[in-house]
Simulated assay, not measured.
Amino acid sequence: MANEIPKLPSIPIKRRALFGFAVAASAGGLVACSGRTTHDGTAAASAPTGSPSAVPAAPQGDHVRVLGVNGGPILSTAHSQPALALLVGTRVYLIDCGGNTAQRLVDAGIGFAGLGNVFTTHHHADHVAGLTDVALLGWTYTPSPVGDLDVWGPLKIDAVISGMQQSLGEATRLFSATKPPRKVTAHTISVPATGSVEVMRDDLVKVTATRVFHGPEVPDAYAYRFDILASGRSVVFSGDTAGPNDNLIALARGTDVLFHEVQMNSAVEELLVQRAPTANQAGLREHLFNSHTDVIAVPQVAQKAGARHLVLCHYVPADLPIAQFHSAVQDAAHRAGFNGRLTAPSELDVIPV
């Protein structure tokens, strides 16, 4: 049975120009316009050690570069907040933009020139905190600066972008004297309680979204599917969701690669809840256990969807070794009857599509 979330009304189109940047929002269904080894049953790319020479080489074909894997607004010396970059040809599609995303794009050797679209799954800080760095520092990055950006996301993404522009107004004005201005355009996506909608299509990909359940306090949380037009292959990004989620399973039907968040419920109480201030523990406990997907359930999603490759992401608790998530999901996969490939990547790892 699908998690029921009421459909919220669309918001009207808004346009605002700030210090040479243009901000626009569109609403509706069809939107107008670290030193470790990857844990993979079939051996994926080796993980980086932080030096440029250790960054895995990009494959010739379409692929996802993992930029951040921490679950939650964690500042860590080992890992970064959630961000995944889908590379199709020379174009980059960014899914979520947590803190340190801009630096990871540079570390990966991707830069910003191919980046034109950012898709946010929801408004939690660890999924949007890096937008300002990507917009401003990407614009000023000399080797391969970002051009115009389209940012897609749930209701209020226009307010996020507008607020970002206002906060960076003076910095933008100062740089505009030496660099031509470019636009950041917000596209508000409205998705019904069940089913999916096409939200963007260009000459390389079709992007479809569905609504997932991430707790009643997050009324708009989305998963995205990218169908690559030339190859016919597909990749799905779950965002943050309690699972198994029926909408996500339907969206991921027959997909080649499914990126799915993962939580180790058995460690949440000791490593997260009990470390929080006493007054915050009840609320944190309720959110974590009711709004994320336990290691036992993740392979059930992949098995029911018929996904060929399950890739873990958004590890909670972030303190646990990635190998521990891989082992737990692998055991659960045997019980669920999922026989596809399983990968537990770290930052800068490469996942072929």
Rank of each mutant, 00 (worst) to 15 (best):
G71I: 13
V146H: 03
P56T: 08
Q60K: 08
P145D: 05
S144Q: 07
T121F: 01
A125E: 11
A44L: 08
A129I: 05
G111E: 07
L67M: 07
G98D: 12
P143D: 09
I110T: 10
H124P: 02
V106T: 11
G89V: 09
G109H: 04
P52A: 06
F119G: 11
G130Q: 07
D150K: 13
G111L: 06
S46H: 03
I95R: 05
T101D: 04
P56I: 09
G153A: 11
I161Q: 03
A47S: 14
V88F: 03
L131K: 01
G111S: 06
S53F: 04
G72M: 11
G68L: 08
Q103E: 09
L155D: 13
L94P: 07
H123I: 09
V69H: 09
V128Q: 06
L75E: 13
P48S: 15
D96I: 08
V88Q: 03
D96W: 00
A47Q: 13
A135N: 03
D133H: 12
T90A: 15
V66C: 07
F112V: 11
V92W: 00
D148R: 02
I74D: 02
A108Q: 04
L136Y: 06
A159E: 14
Q81D: 07
V66F: 04
P82D: 13
A44Y: 04
G116W: 00
T49K: 01
L75H: 12
L115K: 07
P143S: 09
Q103T: 15
G153P: 10
T140G: 04
G153S: 11
L84D: 11
P52Q: 00
P56H: 03
R65L: 02
